[in-house]
Simulated assay, not measured.
Amino acid sequence: MSRESAIPRTPEKPSRAETVAALRPRYQADLTRGTERFFEPRRTDCPWCGSTRLARRLLTKDRYQNKPGRFRLDTCRDCRHVFQNPRLNGDGLEFYYRDFYDGMGEIELGNVFAGRDKVYRRRAMFQEPSAEPPKTWLDVGTGHGHFPEVARTVFPDTRFDGLDFTAGVELAERTGRIDRAIRGSFPELAEERLAGSYDVVSMFHYLEHSTDPRAELRAARRALRPGGHLLIEVPDPECWFGRLFGRFWLPWLQPQHLHFVTVANLREELTALGFTVTAEEHREPSDTVDLLGAVWLALNAIAPPDDSPSLAKPPGRLRWLLRCAILLAGVPALVVATTLDRLLLKPLAGLGKMSNAYRVVARCDASAHSGPR
C-alpha cells in the first residue's frame, strides 16, 4: 500500500443540487397541508399601543428563499408601529428560518456577516475611550458570533457571551468567536440564570425578529447590572425608501421581520423601564444598499431563484437559462444602483428620513424597574 493511499480522504461535500434533493421530502411533507397553518389569527389591534386604527402597509412574498406564502405588514395609524399581521406562529418561524442562517444557508450568510469587520468595530466603540472597558458583554441574536469576534479587538479583556436560538451560537463557541454559547429564549433565561450578569447587552438587528419586543427589553433590563448599557440597532420603518420601494425595500425582509419599532416608541419604552437614552444615531448604522437591494429583489421577482427544496421538483433547464439571461441583463442596473448608493445616498444618510436603520444606546439606572406593562 502506498503512503498516499493510506491517508484517509476527506469526504467530498455534496453539491447544492444533492443537498436540495435530500431536503425536498421534508419540505414537501410540511407543505402538504398548505401554508395557512403557519400563521396565528389575524390581529385587529396594534400589539404596541392597542389601537384598532390599522392600515395595510405591505403585501409580499418570500423573495429570499422563494418559499411559498403571502405576508402582510400593517401600520398602526396612532403609534406608527409596523408589524406582520397575521404573524407567523412557532411552526411557521421554524419553516421559514430553516436553511437561511444555518443548514444550507450557513456558508453563504456566514460569508456575508464575516466581511463586515469595520461595521462591527464601530458598533463596539459606543463609549468614550477614557471609560472603563466592560468586563462582561452579552450579544443577543449573535448568530455565528462574528460581531463579538471583532469587538474583542476593541475590548481584549472583556468576556463575550452569545445568545441565540439556533445551533450557530454553539458553532461560535467552538470556533472561539465567543467565550460562552447560550441557546434559548432571552426573556426566559434572563429571569434567573442571566440576571444582573452583564455590563453590556447588545441587540444588533435582533429586536425586529422577536415575537415580543417589549419582553426582550425587559429581559435586557434584568440581565444588566446597574450602570450597564443596552445597545440596540434596528431597521427604521419611517425611512423614506421603505415607502418608495415598497416590497422591494431590503429591510422589510419578509417573513422574518415581525416588528418594526419607531425610534420614538423605543425611547418611550426604555424610559418607562428606567433606562436613560444616552445616544441616538441614524447616519452611522445606515447600511446604504437601498437601491442595490431594490434592483436585486426586483430581478428575483422577475426570475425567482432556481432550485429550492420547497419546490416539488427541480425547474427545467429552460428556466435556469432564462434566469441567467435576466440576471446578466440586470448587471448594468446593479452596477448603477451600487454607484448611486455609495456616491449619492451614503453622504445623505442621517438627513431627514434617509437612514434605513437607527441605533440607540441606553444606560440602565439603579432605580430602573423591569415589570410588565
Results as ranks from 00 to 15, higher is better:
Gly92Tyr: 12
Thr158Ser: 03
Arg218Cys: 06
Val169His: 09
Arg183Ile: 07
Leu138Gln: 11
Ala172Trp: 13
Pro129Val: 03
Leu297Ala: 12
Trp252Cys: 09
Ser5Pro: 00
Lys135Gln: 15
Gln127Asn: 07
Pro11Arg: 03
Trp320Lys: 15
Ala215Tyr: 02
Pro41Trp: 15
Pro304Ala: 08
Lys135Ile: 01
Asn265Ala: 13
Asp74Ala: 06
Val82Phe: 00
Asp365Asn: 14
Leu230Gly: 07
Ala279Tyr: 00
Gly242Lys: 10
Lys313Pro: 00
Phe204Tyr: 14
Pro315Gln: 08
Ala264Glu: 13
Ser51Val: 08
Thr262Trp: 01
Gly352Cys: 05
Gly90Ile: 01
Pro315Phe: 03
Leu217Ser: 03
Ser185Gly: 08
Pro14His: 06
Arg319Ile: 05
Thr276Glu: 15
Val331Lys: 09
Ser286Tyr: 02
Pro314Asp: 10
Leu73Cys: 13
Arg33Lys: 12
Gln84Arg: 04
Tyr120Val: 02
Thr262Asp: 08
Ile178Phe: 07
Arg174Leu: 07
Phe113Gln: 09
Pro187Tyr: 06
Gly34Val: 06
Leu266Val: 03
Asp212Ile: 04
Leu189His: 03
Lys353Cys: 10
Asp161Val: 02
Pro235Lys: 05
Lys135Ala: 15
Val201Ala: 11
Arg222Tyr: 02
Asp157Trp: 01
Glu18Ser: 12
Asp99Lys: 08
His229Arg: 13
Asn111Asp: 11
Ser185Thr: 08
Tyr97Asn: 14
Val331Ser: 07
Gly143Asn: 12
Thr136Ile: 01
Tyr64Cys: 00
Glu284Tyr: 00
Pro8Tyr: 03
Arg72Gly: 10
Thr262Gly: 10
Gly50Thr: 03
Leu273Cys: 05
Gly115Met: 06
Glu208Met: 13
Gly352Arg: 13
Thr271His: 11
Arg123Gly: 02
Arg16Gln: 12
Ile7Gly: 04
Pro133Asp: 12
Gln28Ile: 09
Cys49Gly: 01
His259Met: 02
Lys135Cys: 05
Thr153Gly: 03
Leu171Lys: 15
Lys61Pro: 00
Asp179Phe: 00
Pro226Asp: 09
Val119Ile: 09
Leu88Cys: 04
Arg63Asn: 05
Val154Tyr: 03
Gly293Met: 02
Ala220Arg: 06
Asn356Glu: 04
His369Phe: 01
Tyr206Ala: 02
Ser286Pro: 07
Ala368Trp: 07
Phe160Asn: 13
Phe160Asp: 12
Ala333Asn: 04
Phe100Arg: 10
Gly162Gln: 08
Thr175Ile: 09
Val261Ile: 14
Pro47Asp: 05
Val234Pro: 12
Arg267Asn: 13
Tyr64Met: 02
Asp341Ala: 11
Trp240Tyr: 11
Phe155Tyr: 15
Gly162Cys: 06
Gly330Cys: 09
Leu345Asp: 06
Glu192Gly: 04
Arg122Asp: 12
Thr158Val: 01
Ser308Met: 04
Pro304Phe: 05
Ala151Leu: 11
Leu318Ser: 09
Trp137Glu: 12
Pro134Leu: 12
Tyr101Ala: 02
Ile178Gly: 08
Gly293Phe: 01
Cys76Glu: 07
Asp74Gln: 10
Arg152Pro: 02
Gly246Cys: 07
Cys79Gln: 06
